[in-house]
Design a protein around this nucleic acid. Sequence first.
DNA 1: CGTTTTTGACCCGCGC
DNA 2: GCGCGGGTCAAAAACG
Length: 275
Amino acid sequence: MLMEKYSWSYHEEDELIKELLDDESPFFLAPHEQYYNYSLDVTKSSIVHSGPNIHDDNTQSGAQSYDVSHDARINLGLGRGLSMMMDKQEAHEAKYSLRIKTCGNAMADDGYKWRKYGQKSIKNSPYPRSYYKCTNPRCGAKKQVERSSDEADTFIITYEGLHLHFAYPFLTLDPPQFLDQPNKKPKLTNSKAQNYSSDENASEVYESPRFANPGPVLDLEQELGFGGMGSQGLLEDMVPLMVRNPSIIKPTNSYSSSSSYSSPPTSPSFSWSNN
DNA sequence: CGTTTTTGACCCGCGC
DNA sequence: GCGCGGGTCAAAAACG
């Protein structure tokens, strides 16, 4: 009866997706702001973040890739080339791959709480791959993180499944500032996101244009929930407002005290022990 | 002491 | 049918 705390198999996920599709989920925006649908459209894609022209290997999803150069704020037009579907099944297999080049040692912390449930070594890579699942009991999203076999400083993060985070893609980081304004917060070393859960920072990023973006201008970073790799703390600025805004999110007693979700630098770092 | 991570076993689909 | 990967489970260990 009391299944594992994290085994929301297709049932749960099913419901989650349903919620997303019917705009009746308290988790998301107001009924009239059906932007999450939009996010669903952004299904299969692959992003090459940073790096010359890494024509990604298309990863396992065979998706297409967008080279965003090292433009931290990726405002890519996700509209085109993306298969739109709202079918549960398809949504289920949605995969996003991020290639992130980092300077030296970086952690792929996206500010969310993930539970690592496995790690495997990869065939042609000296680096292992880590498997994570969203700790949100209502979310079945998963992600895997691995290192590029060639470039040790390139992380490949693949998000899979419908993640709650996808519900908040609508923010345009038009104001290219977070990178230029380190004054916001030097680093979120230990002071985790939750701290400034208020809106100070949030409001900056989520000014108003976020809902106003007509065009397919999302910020994938945001959407995929990825954060300050080498770019320190910027992830904080990007952590979806709602996730940290209790007033929007209905307090599910599911997560007891510990799973507060905005994870601190609990970066899903790897432990490439071998090698 | 509760929670998170580690790690080998297990399971499953796929190609040979 | 078998072996190889890749993905997941779950018990144990590590952590704070």
